[in-house]
Amino acid sequence: MKKLINDPNDVVVEALLGVEAAHPDLRVDHANKVVYRGDAPKPGKVGIISGGGSGHEPLHGGFVGLGMLDAACAGEVFTSPVPDQMLAATKLVDGGAGVLHVVKNYTGDVMNFEMAAELAAAETGANVVSVVTDDDVAVQDSTWTAGRRGVGVTVLLEKIAGAAAEEGRDLDAVAAVARKVNAQGRSMGVALTSCTVPAAGSPTFQLGEDEMEVGVGIHGEPGRRRVPLAPAKEIAEMILEPILSDLPFGSGDAVIAFVNGLGGTPLIELYVMYNEVSKILSKHGVSVARPLVGSYITSLEMAGSSVTLLKVDDELLSLWDAPVRTPALRWGI
């Protein structure tokens, strides 16, 4: 296992120390592993928290700051945080206008956030609303299963809901715009390599030199199918077709097109991917209102990429363009 770490069990704790040292605007509650805004709680502003297993950086801690999240809870690597953490975060950011919980749809995340909301209601009477993201079209949607995973849309949702909260909308309105983002966004990913959970010490799955996994999530889990390694052009088609046909996205639609790296893939390859994605979109008459290219929701050092499309209207676009100042996304300020 080749990682820039010390004891594999200390990765999360030490990374949070690094976050604290590197970002004077942010605070870290080390006991609860919560990263939060130095100016939290903001009286009258809806608080927004999220959280999940670590290993997806910059998600979520790197999105804490003005115009985005108020706090993020860091679980162990690939393991949902525990309810105590979400409860602590909820208390830290509750400025009286209620708190939105942004939850990625994984059994563990959903159950732990659920317990946290129950505890928050009981302990503080805080007004908590949860929004669950489930944008991964690689997973068959069904009421009989755990449903789709929450992946790339989470990043876009946190930005847009963050802007809505920052401009003073109330909890229901912020939750509504968050749900709209989730409803209009779709994602899919492909892995060229596995990743290694530090505490496990060896790769989660084995992949041949000429193979790739299509339809992976962000936890190093195998995907829907293993296929021969393909050129970027074919990979882009493989993941865009299911995305486009699912919503569906069609001619005349405007989107935020988000080409994401899974952690071990360098930017030069993401631009090659973006080129392919952009060609396919224009063939379908879908116009890119805003692009986002980079590694924003990762799976440790996994090589690969995911693509997220979010259908936007003027409201979502103006919220997207609103100022944001976080470690990972920053503009307008």
Binding site: G53, V82, T107, M115
Partner: peptide, 12 residues
């Protein structure tokens, strides 16, 4: 267990 495990198995 609720406070230390996390994931699916913690709440369960």
């Amino acid at each position: 267990l609720v406070s230390t495990v996390g994931g699916a198995s913690g709440p369960l």
